[in-house]
């Protein structure tokens, strides 16, 4: 167990530093902060609402993650395969799980950094009024969990291709479907022909409905289980894809 933690953290550290050795980190962080701010102030009407909360800020996170998280995830395995370093990595004395988890945690921590950099939003709203900081904390936790779920899907797709652009597009599309599956627009199309259990299954898969609840301060078990099991499932698929595709 000790060895598992050690190896995973060595992999994660390498991977985390790798983000900052290219302009990707800077570009990502700037765009993330600029967009979360812009959406909250201009689209969400942060000031006009006259309420001391961060709802207009969190509201657009699913849509931002849709594009930004696959950009973080796309290189995780596609680059290893393209450059051939996967052969090096997988012949080191580590288990595949240590590599998969290490990479995933590094990317997740990177998104965590991006989220932390939005703390001025939280400070602003506390200066301007007296918000319910518990709800805001729940919002951050929910946002981070949701990012993790997007990321696990992205990592899993990244293991399927050597091409980062393809990894990005496929992951973004999948994430889009996962977000959209909660919208009435989609559910109505389904209701026309699908049995009821399928409709509710699809709607319960939605990132949006789970995130909405968390963002309102309801950090219930079902949403936690939803995101965590989605992460577990995607990483499990990731493991299989790495095994299947590593030699191509």
């Amino acid at each position: 167990m000790h060895e598992f933690v050690r190896n995973t953290s060595i992999i994660a550290r390498r991977e985390f530093v790798a983000y900052f050795s290219t302009p990707l980190a800077t570009v990502f962080l700037i765009i993330f902060i600029a967009l979360t701010g812009a959406f909250a102030f201009y689209v969400g009407g942060f000031f006009e609402r006259g309420q001391a909360d961060l709802a207009p800020f969190f509201q657009y996170h699913p849509w931002l993650y849709l594009l930004l998280v696959p950009a973080v995830a796309m290189r995780l395995w596609a680059e290893e395969r393209k450059s051939g370093t996967i052969e090096l990595l997988m012949t080191l004395p580590i288990s595949p799980w240590e590599a998969i988890l290490g990479k995933f945690l590094a990317a997740w921590a990177f998104i965590g950094v991006a989220l932390l950099l939005t703390l001025p939003m939280w400070i602003t709203v506390n200066v301007l009024g007296s918000p319910d900081n518990g709800v805001i904390l729940a919002g951050y936790v929910g946002s981070f969990l949701m990012a993790g779920a997007f990321l696990a899907v992205g990592s899993c797709i990244s293991a399927l291709t050597k091409n980062q652009v393809i990894a990005f597009i496929v992951a973004a599309t999948l994430c889009f479907l996962l977000v959209m599956s909660g919208l009435e627009l989609v559910l109505n199309v389904l209701r026309a022909w699908a049995p009821g259990f399928l409709v509710s299954a699809v709607s319960s898969m939605s990132f949006l409905s789970h995130f909405d609840r968390i963002a309102k301060g309801v950090l219930d078990v079902s949403s936690l289980v939803f995101y965590l099991s989605l992460i577990a499932f995607a990483l499990f698929a990731n493991r299989i894809f790495v095994e299947l595709k590593k030699a191509d």
Binding site: A18, T85, E87
Partner: peptide, 10 residues
């Protein structure tokens, strides 16, 4: 390994 792959960004 063939082609001597290394992590180029390090």
């Amino acid at each position: 390994p063939e082609g001597a792959p290394c992590y180029g960004d390090m």
